[in-house]
Design a protein around this nucleic acid. Sequence first.
DNA 1: CGGGTGATTGATACCCATCAATAGTGGTGG
DNA 2: CCACCACTATTGATGGGTATCAATCACCCG
Lengths: 224, 224
Amino acid sequence: MLSKEEQDAILALKSEAPRFTPGRDLVRPSETIGHATLVASGNVGRFDLMRNGARQITAIYMAGDMCDLYSVVAPTTSWGLTALGNCSVHRVAHADLRGLAEAYPGLAQAFWRVTVLDASILAKWIGNIGRKDARARIAHLLCELGIRMERAGLGQRDSYALALTQEHIGDAMGLTSVHVNRTLQRLKAEEVVTLHGHHVTVGDRDRLVAIAEFTPTFLLCGEE
Amino acid sequence: MLSKEEQDAILALKSEAPRFTPGRDLVRPSETIGHATLVASGNVGRFDLMRNGARQITAIYMAGDMCDLYSVVAPTTSWGLTALGNCSVHRVAHADLRGLAEAYPGLAQAFWRVTVLDASILAKWIGNIGRKDARARIAHLLCELGIRMERAGLGQRDSYALALTQEHIGDAMGLTSVHVNRTLQRLKAEEVVTLHGHHVTVGDRDRLVAIAEFTPTFLLCGEE
DNA sequence: CGGGTGATTGATACCCATCAATAGTGGTGG
DNA sequence: CCACCACTATTGATGGGTATCAATCACCCG
């Protein structure tokens, strides 16, 4: 996530601002692109595509996030971007971003910091998917998104809007939508967290954090 | 991976060069560190630690790799570094690296590029662990490491040294060492790849790549 | 030539995938 | 405003890929 000032500096550049409907791909794998994407509203997912058509979502972005700062350095993608629900984005040319980075060293550093945050979240996801069961994975995801939403000024950690379907959550956590459904029912029965109507409501934050083994350090926060 | 010149620029700085024996931790989770680590020889792994003691390796580094460039931006870690076999490293102060980055914009960009490569590998691992079976995961890992070893001038993609134990491979791919063992036996019986005496020998590269669904784009290479 | 780590093997259990079908829900157009 | 339609959520039955537990074997290093 970039600061308000940093986002404004980017938006001062001329940029398109297209809208997308659910399931539409903003970038397809193996494309070579000349622009980066700043989310204006809604959720965007980065994904990896398997030969059999299965998708693995590797990152979830919200308003204020740059989805593909990577592409400034590596314009040929190995991944795609897809609209998780309705969303709108700003597209900014790589050349313009490079210009900004050269003119303002602070922004260059901010780009690096954003990339580090992205990588830090990716590493944490590997731990989740590789070593935790479905309940802990989903709990961790909902914790993480809550903190990020709150920090972005888009809601509260215990109550926030989320465009993802259960299928999306499965694609993100390496599960099937069927199993996500059963696991969410369990978390709801335990009165820990509820997901209904594209809205997350945390009933018992302490237990959610405990189930997830959630430690926010990886989000590069002070403490929170 | 940094270029030879970039590594030399870093090594021109005064730095320690300690050695580590297998299983020793170079950095423990939740530490605040003042230096970054450049691998001199052997393999180093970054890992995430679960409450029950289980480890998930999130990255594998080889000679010439910077393990924790992250820490320049975020000095308090959510991860640890461990010696996968005998290894030696150079430790370089964050302050010195920041100085270099300011003095030489090319190096600053190199740091960013390295971080992007790291994140790109992390994202691919998520896809592997989340959506592929044990055979494909291991095949993919051995493909990836082969390319990286070759590019670093440390071996050939079809024949290279690897310090990892089967337990390490399990920790990296979200499997148990028992299942890694059985899967490696199968890959050996199929005459696809053999891992013996800390050495990887690829018998049938085409099949290995096919099993892994390996596409090297994510390593930011031209083609290879 | 020990001694300890890593590799190997077998038996059993379980989490989650898979397949299939039904119910619910929100958005759209007539 | 309601009927319709596609997508999403839900439920049940079954199977499979891995985990788990527990030995035993092989190997490397001092």
